[in-house]
Amino acid sequence: MDLLLLLKAAIMGIVEGVTEFLPISSTGHLILASELMNFWTKEKSDLFVVAIQMGAIAAVIYEYWSKLWGAATGLFSGEPKGRHLGVSLILASIPIVLVGLTFGEKVKELLFNDVTVAIGLIIGGIIIWWVEKHPPKVNAEEVENISLKEAIYIGLIQVLSLIPGTSRSGATIIGAMCLGVSRKAATEFSFFLGIPVIIGAGLLDLAKSYHVYQTGEDWTVFFVGLIVSFVSALILIRVLVAYVAKRDFMVFAWYRIVSGLIILLFALTGWKLW
């Protein structure tokens, strides 16, 4: 067993768990971390980057089980709040499912690189900065207050997250805030919206490419990353919910802009960190 490879998988799991729900692009950070650590072969690493996100989303299901169960059963029992949240999540998930199934492979082929990540980080950072400087009027304080029309718009905005560096969390949270959703409700809705998208993408990629993991060691490396991403994401979720109750996302805007510029500089000059 290659202990260094397991350590790299654990680090990738931490990167995923910490970045998945922050507006800074988990996929972008995983791509960069993979390149910096020379993590695995490209084929195995690309599958790892997508599939490991299921560990982070499992943390959402664990943390919000009661509310999510209410949304699922509300679709059939008719409980108003649960039904409304369930329908909202379904409507918001449709656009990215359709676009992802149609263009997902082409996006990976063309845009999974550090230059795209850098540009996505910078543009997203500027948008977050502008929204925080010009906060819209809040009309939906809780996640159950998000209207079906707003849910559809948030779902359309989420399609942008197929571009590495954009950030699914960043697109959905900031997009929801622009529509008048409170920061807390936007963050929770983004958590929930990731469940069908990330689990669907992860399972689809595993079904298509599971053969690239040919040995027990390959699968051990994968599950180490998955478990570590679950634990680190669970911690991050609790910290982030407490954070957004008192603070804005301006620090993430500057982080995106500065890190994007640094990545772009290294990418365009060919410089190496080591």
Rank of each mutant, 00 (worst) to 15 (best):
K246M: 06
V15H: 10
R83S: 06
V228N: 05
I128H: 03
I24C: 05
I237Q: 08
T172I: 00
L265T: 14
R183L: 10
I163L: 14
L101K: 15
T172F: 00
A176P: 00
N113K: 05
E188Y: 07
I199T: 07
I152Y: 10
L264A: 08
V87A: 12
F39S: 11
E35D: 15
E79R: 11
I263R: 01
I96R: 00
I198G: 05
E141S: 10
I96Q: 00
L98N: 01
Y210W: 15
E150Y: 09
Y210A: 15
L226G: 03
F103N: 11
G100F: 00
L91M: 12
P196Q: 09
V60D: 12
A186I: 01
L264S: 04
L110R: 05
F21R: 07
G74F: 02
K133D: 13
I90Y: 03
H211K: 13
P135Q: 09
V241G: 08
Y255I: 04
V197D: 01
L204H: 08
F76K: 09
I128D: 03
G82C: 10
K208M: 04
G260P: 13
P164M: 12
E105P: 11
T166A: 10
I237C: 04
A171T: 12
S190T: 03
T19W: 06
W65P: 12
F189N: 01
L68A: 03
V97Q: 01
L22S: 04
V97F: 10
I152H: 08
S169Q: 10
T269E: 04
W65S: 13
V251T: 14
P95Q: 02
P136L: 13
